[in-house]
Amino acid sequence: MNEFGERLARYQGEIITSILETGAMLGWSLLAAVLIGLPVGTGMYLSRRGGPKERGWLYAGLNGFVNVVRSVPFLLFVVALIPFTRWAVGTSFGTTAAAVPLSFVAVALYARWAEQTLVEVPQATVELADSLGASTSQLVTRFLYPEARSGLVLSLTTVTISMISYSTIMGVVGGGGVGDFAIRYGYQRYEYDIMYVTIAVIVVIVMLIQAFGTRLSMALDHRSR
């Protein structure tokens, strides 16, 4: 136990670094999810068959992108994306490079969630916006997002947690992060106790994120009360 404590103290710096790396990968991919995934999901909602701005070609394009990104096995996707990653951030190795494929996945996941969440908004809300002479952008920002906001927060929470899971394999391109730390010490150096501690840290982080997301979502939801 004493010996374990000593090792833990010795790795402290490395653990903190790996948490920061995970934070950076999550931060970039969630930023992409909100800035790109939400508009893509909104576009799918609007352009889908029977949607407020039906456009078959647009829906087919966005939907195809989301399906492709989501269906390629992630490890293959990371490798296949390397040329693009190198072009986009100048390198295919390291935390920033790891953020690129993660961002693609986050965009695709959140786009799908956002689409589904918006579909749940009652048709009456669209009817109201139409009757008030709202433009399409007003429909989205003044009517749909406010009514869907608790679902949008909840689904972003789900995406965040998925991204933690995806980020654990980013060691393959030198992305680092807590997952990589756990694999290196547990799998490669047989320091299982360190690995279990790291896993426990990840579990706690996931639980905190979920609790925060659930709370925020409930606070934003006035549909019954």
């Binding site: 139409d130 009517f143 406010p146 549909r223």
Partner: peptide, 30 residues
């Protein structure tokens, strides 16, 4: 033209996440 014609519905169509006052002010903000 629609903004000059008011409309009410069987199911009221109020926005659930806005207060009563914000619902009423909504057309003005548009």
């Amino acid at each position: 033209q629609r903004r000059r014609i008011g409309m009410i519905f069987q199911q009221f169509n109020l926005l659930a996440n806005k207060t009563v006052a914000a619902n009423v002010a909504l057309p003005l903000s548009l």
